[in-house]
């Protein structure tokens, strides 16, 4: 019983520490576009992946975007184990 309770307490603690935030990265004077492209990088225990790319260029290529209007970055994490960073590019 004690074991189960302690595991539940740990699980609850990790739930509380997981979160998602979306922050602005940049905006341009180009018209707000209808296209969207995303690029994602995942890190486990803070280590960089062997081949990660969540740059603006990668995200724009994914959406076929040639004129960028604005860029947001979404970060999702379960501290300290897992972090997922997504760059979202909007434009035409």
């Amino acid at each position: 019983m004690k074991k189960i309770l302690s595991l539940l307490a740990v699980a609850a603690a990790f739930t509380v520490t997981s979160c998602t935030t979306v922050a602005p990265l940049t905006a341009t004077s180009n018209q707000v576009g209808s296209k969207c492209g995303v690029a994602t990088e995942t890190r486990i225990l803070g280590f960089y992946p062997l081949a990660g790319d969540h740059g603006i260029n990668k995200a724009a290529k994914e959406g076929g975007i040639k004129k960028i209007s604005h860029v947001d970055v979404e970060t999702f994490g379960v501290f300290p184990f897992y972090t997922k960073t997504t760059t979202q590019v909007y434009g035409e």
């Binding site: 990790f14 997981s18 998602t20 184990f81 897992y82």
Partner: peptide, 19 residues
């Protein structure tokens, strides 16, 4: 081992619950 296993399962569940 049990703790590590539970944490791994939990992380994957939370990760899959993302928007």
């Amino acid at each position: 081992r049990l703790l590590i296993g539970c944490v791994s399962i939990f992380v994957s569940v939370i990760a899959s619950a993302q928007g």
